[in-house]
């Protein structure tokens, strides 16, 4: 799927549930793929007794990766020119996350039509866990 500039307008939005009941195993899977084995993400003993958190939590980059899936499902493959986020709250096992993109601007640059997106991901309590922006080329 790609976006066509004539079929979109500022304020249009798209959202997806990006994970339902996040598992500790998926966090481990992400650790293995990304190479980030920080024990705060997988080691219950370390994270509770040394780091002082209630349990393990997801890599921010796992949330960014899952949110990125929503973005590329919306704008199409290979279309992103920029994707950036802030991690505003931790993501815990059991969380269900919904990611949303809203069109903030449609503009021309160097002969390309670009769309600027405002991105946010919220948990089941409707707290933001991630906020960000992306820019993609559209047709």
């Amino acid at each position: 799927m790609t976006l066509n500039a004539t079929e979109i307008k500022v304020g249009d939005s798209y959202s997806e549930m990006i994970v339902e009941d996040l598992t500790r195993t998926q966090i481990v899977q992400y650790a293995g793929a990304s190479g980030d084995y920080n024990p705060v993400h997988s080691d219950e003993k370390f994270v509770t007794e040394v780091a002082g958190y209630p349990t393990v939590f997801a890599h921010g980059m796992l949330t960014m990766g899952m949110t990125g899936r929503m973005v590329t499902n919306y704008v199409g493959d290979g279309r992103l020119t920029y994707y950036g986020v802030r991690f505003v709250n931790q993501v815990w096992p059991g969380d269900t996350l919904t990611a949303r993109a809203e069109i903030a601007a449609i503009r021309e640059e160097d002969g390309d039509t670009l769309v600027d997106l405002t991105i946010s991901t919220t948990n089941q309590d409707e707290n933001f866990v991630l906020t960000g922006n992306a820019t993609a080329r559209v047709d």
Binding site: V50, G52, G60, M61, L80, Y82, Y83, G84, R86, F87
Partner: peptide
């Protein structure tokens, strides 16, 4: 940050020149 309780990832931004 990895060795301390408080080290966390706050922001991440990618600019793509190609994929």
């Amino acid at each position: 940050s990895g060795s301390s309780a408080g080290g966390l990832h706050a922001e991440q931004h990618f600019t793509y020149h190609r994929h």
